[in-house]
Structure formats: C-alpha cells, structure tokens
Design a protein around this nucleic acid. Sequence first.
DNA 1: GAAACCC
DNA 2: GGGTTTCAACGCGGG
DNA 3: CCCGCG
Length: 311
Amino acid sequence: MTPASPTLSATARLTHPERPLWPAAAGLAGPFTKRDLANYLEVVAPWLLLHLRGRPLVLTRYPRGITGPSFYQKNVPPGAPGWLASFPDRPVGGRAVDYPIVGDARGLAWLAQQAAIEFHPWSARALDPERPDRAMIDLDPEPPAGFADACAVARAARQLLSLGGLRLWCKTSGATGVHLCLPIRPAWPHRDVVAVVRALGLRLAEWLPGRVTLERAVARRSGRVYVDYLQNRRGQTVCAPYSPRALPGAPVSMPLAWEDLGGDPPVRWHLLSVPERLRRRGDAWADLAEGGRQDLRQVIRACAAPLPDTP
DNA sequence: GAAACCC
DNA sequence: GGGTTTCAACGCGGG
DNA sequence: CCCGCG
Ligand SMILES: [Mn+2]
Ligand SMILES: [Mn+2]
C-alpha cells in the first residue's frame, strides 16, 4: 500500500464520520453526526475563528456523543499535531497547563476529529494573558426564570451601560441563558474585571428588584437571573460565539442583534440553521472589533448614574 | 479519541 | 496484546 | 470550618 499523500494532511482525516454525536431529539433539529460537526465548523470558520485565534482554549469532548461520557480538556493532548499552537501557563502556586490555541480551519478540523463539541476560549489573549480584552457577562436564569428573563436582564444591562457611553454585544448561550460581551482595552487584570462586573450585577439587582441575584448557591437564587460575574476570573471561560453546545438539538451560542434577542427560543440556532443565517444576514458581532477597546472604568460611572425608569 | 499505563 | 485509565480543580461566597 | 458552585 502506498503511503498517504503528504498533500492530503493526515490531520484532516475524519474517522467515524457517521457517528451520531447528537442523537435525534423529539421536536428538535438533528440528529447530527461527526461529519455534520466538521461541516459546520468549516462553514462558520471565518466568524468562529475571530474569537478563538490567539486565545488559550478549553474543550469539552464527547467521543461517543452527547449522551456518552465526556471530559474537559485544558492541555494539548499527547499526539496532537505539531503545528498546533499552544500557551504554556505556569501560574504561581498552580499546576502548569499547556493550552491549545486554534487559529485556522485545519485546527477546527482537528477539533472535529477529537469530538470536541464545546469551545471555551479565554477572555484574554495569550500574548497579554493577564489583561482580558473583553468582559463577559454570563446571565444564568434559575427556573422558573428562563430565557425571556435573561433577555430582559440583558436589555437592562445594555441600557445601564449606555449611561457610560458603552456598547454591549449579546448572544444566546445555547442553553437557556444569555452572554453579554463588553470589549475593553486590555489594561486591567482579571480581578478588576470581576469586581466591575459584580458592581454591574449589584446595580442591576437594584434596578430590577427580585429579578436578579448574585448568589453563588443555587438554592438561594429563587427563580431569579444569576449574574455570574465570577466567570471573569483568570482561567474561567464562557463558550465562544458560534460554539456548538452538547445539548439536545445541537444548539449553538448565537450572536444576535439586540432587536433579535428573545425573538426566537435558543434552540432555533443550531448546526444547520446558523450557517444559513450567517450567509443571509451576516455576523451580528461584525462591528465588535471596531466598537472595542472601551474603558472598563466607564462601567463604574454608569452604575453611579441615576437609574432610569424601570424598563 | 488517543495515549499512557498496567498486567 | 489488550483491558483500563486519563483527560480541570480551585478560589471563593456564604452560612 | 465546610460545602457548593462553575
Ligand atoms: Mn451561562
Ligand atoms: Mn454560569
């Protein structure tokens, strides 16, 4: 047998392409196979890679599909291709980790082969790892609060931050929550971002009494929307824009224009529908880079401003 | 999914 | 050779 | 101090 052609990069091979990663689920899109995942990643690559490139990456992998065993992966696994970039992190007093960094379509193909389903990039770049260039505001509704409540809190956050002249971008988490992105000048350490997002959460709780909580303990959240400000700590992450989720129906964390947030349930955005939407309407976060590099301190100003009428 | 580990 | 294990883990809020 | 949490 002749050896594989070196022009067909061995790393692009996809084994078990028909393996169902998302089994059929009643009333939802799918089933979706490993090949579906690879195809999806190939199509959304130009937009997804914008948020992976240069950032340490944490993966969640499901080699036998979302109903099978799973694991997080921080380190570049042994046997990974030599061209894969990485970020060696040796935090003082912590265990050393060598995070993968995916920056091109060939990296995405490798992720599909690895059955890596969820992509969790750092909010800081590897070249400036101590200073995040975005604050992520993770809104987790605690039942009976749901997606609509998270959207309402998201819009309130947008209005509040506008008092400081700040622009905010939104996406579905893919589950029932919402993720907000505040691009900032990378000038403050992670702990400052935590403190500022906490202050924002406290102000939201003031503005929307009984609808917002900062309580860590689930039992004490009592049907409110949890502002998970601690997700901004060093090494903590939320899933990337356009990352698939390991949930029935293969939902995707979907960036949306503010006018569209809440117009559809989160499962509306999945492995098949997102590429079509991107082709027709483009990327709702296309202007994030140009609106970026905002001043984190303006959040404090916004929170000190008089509260508008309750939205 | 793939390697390291163990008998 | 083949079955099994590993693949993150800590800082912190709050009682 | 211990537990829960992500
Ligand atoms: Mn969330
Ligand atoms: Mn969360």
